[in-house]
Structure formats: structure tokens, C-alpha cells
Simulated assay, not measured.
Amino acid sequence: MICQHLKDAGDPPPQTPYAQGCPECVAGGFDDWVHLRLCLNCGKVACCDSSPRRHMSHHHAEVGHPVMRSYEPGETWRWCFDDEQLG
């Protein structure tokens, strides 16, 4: 059964274009992110947990936004951090 966070998640426009990569990595002088994720609460774009700095997980820990989705071309899956559920 799908969790309520995934059911209620919106799909805000991203705060940054895909081609620029992870904004926090770029700002720090890094270009080694693996994949990008999009916060479905606020539209923040950040790198995934396979990336060295795991900025999307840090975003969840800092602000508590529960759901993100893949921000990779052709991917539409979502993840709820709170319930550890894929949707």
C-alpha cells in the first residue's frame, strides 16, 4: 500500500535547470554527482545518495520534506524518506 506522503506529493517546477547539475556541488566546485533528485515539496534539485555529498538526503534531514523524485530524463519514480517507500 502506498504511503500518504507519496499520494499527497505534488510536482513543483525545479528551481534549477537539469543541465547545470547539483547546485550545491557546483557551488562547492564539484562535478562528481551521480544522479539528480527533485524535492516534491519545494522544487529543490540536489544529488542522490550514490553521490559523494548526498545533498537530497541532507535536504530531507534539514527541512523534513518527505518526498523526492528522480530528476533524470525518462525516470518518474518517487521516494518517501519518512516511510522508506518507493512510489
Results as ranks from 00 to 15, higher is better:
2 I>L: 11
2 I>W: 04
2 I>F: 06
3 C>R: 06
4 Q>M: 11
5 H>I: 00
5 H>A: 02
6 L>W: 01
7 K>M: 11
8 D>E: 10
9 A>P: 05
9 A>F: 01
9 A>C: 06
10 G>D: 04
11 D>C: 05
11 D>H: 09
12 P>C: 01
13 P>A: 08
13 P>H: 03
14 P>G: 03
19 A>S: 13
22 C>M: 05
22 C>K: 05
23 P>E: 09
23 P>T: 10
23 P>I: 09
25 C>V: 10
25 C>G: 10
28 G>M: 12
28 G>I: 04
30 F>N: 15
33 W>S: 05
34 V>K: 12
36 L>I: 05
38 L>V: 01
38 L>Q: 01
39 C>V: 04
41 N>K: 13
41 N>H: 12
42 C>R: 01
43 G>R: 02
43 G>P: 03
43 G>D: 00
46 A>P: 06
49 D>V: 13
50 S>W: 11
52 P>I: 08
53 R>T: 12
53 R>N: 12
54 R>K: 14
54 R>Y: 09
55 H>S: 09
55 H>M: 11
56 M>P: 07
56 M>Y: 03
57 S>E: 12
57 S>R: 11
57 S>L: 10
57 S>K: 11
58 H>R: 15
59 H>E: 08
60 H>C: 06
61 A>Q: 14
62 E>M: 07
63 V>H: 15
63 V>D: 10
65 H>P: 09
65 H>G: 05
66 P>M: 04
67 V>M: 00
68 M>N: 11
68 M>P: 05
69 R>K: 09
69 R>S: 00
69 R>Y: 00
69 R>F: 00
69 R>I: 03
70 S>P: 10
70 S>T: 13
71 Y>H: 13
71 Y>A: 05
72 E>S: 08
72 E>C: 01
73 P>W: 03
74 G>I: 03
74 G>A: 07
74 G>Y: 06
76 T>S: 14
76 T>A: 11
77 W>I: 00
77 W>R: 02
78 R>E: 00
78 R>G: 00
78 R>N: 02
79 W>L: 12
79 W>Q: 07
80 C>Y: 10
80 C>H: 09
81 F>S: 06
81 F>E: 06
81 F>Q: 07
82 D>G: 08
83 D>N: 15
83 D>K: 13
85 Q>G: 04
85 Q>C: 08
